[in-house]
Amino acid sequence: MPRVFIPPPMRSLTEGEEVVEVGGTNLRQVIENLEQRFPGIKERLCQEEEIRPGLAVDIGGSVATLGMLQRTAPDAEIHFLPAIGGG
């Protein structure tokens, strides 16, 4: 199952767990399954059923460009990070 790395400010919702394994073949399913286990977490990550503006999701080393539709491999690591601009 994908391994979701929980940002420190969200760990109050996961009882301190830093990494959790949740099922899902795309990001939407992963976040829905996270919400089932840790109610309230989706609101922190999403706005109107999309990833919050300013937030980037790194899945297996690549930034998700398809948002909630991004596929998640069974062994993928998922990180929620600040979106990065550039000069």
């Binding site: 929980i6 940002p7 420190p8 400010p9 969200m10 309230g40 922190r44 990550l45 937030l55 600040p82």
Partner: peptide, 21 residues
């Protein structure tokens, strides 16, 4: 990132964002 949204009734601040890794 990932924190609970602050209440609009809370006091405004100059600290717009906080990150922790």
């Amino acid at each position: 990132v990932g924190s609970a949204p602050a209440s609009k009734d809370s006091k405004p601040t100059n600290i717009a964002k906080h990150f922790l890794f």
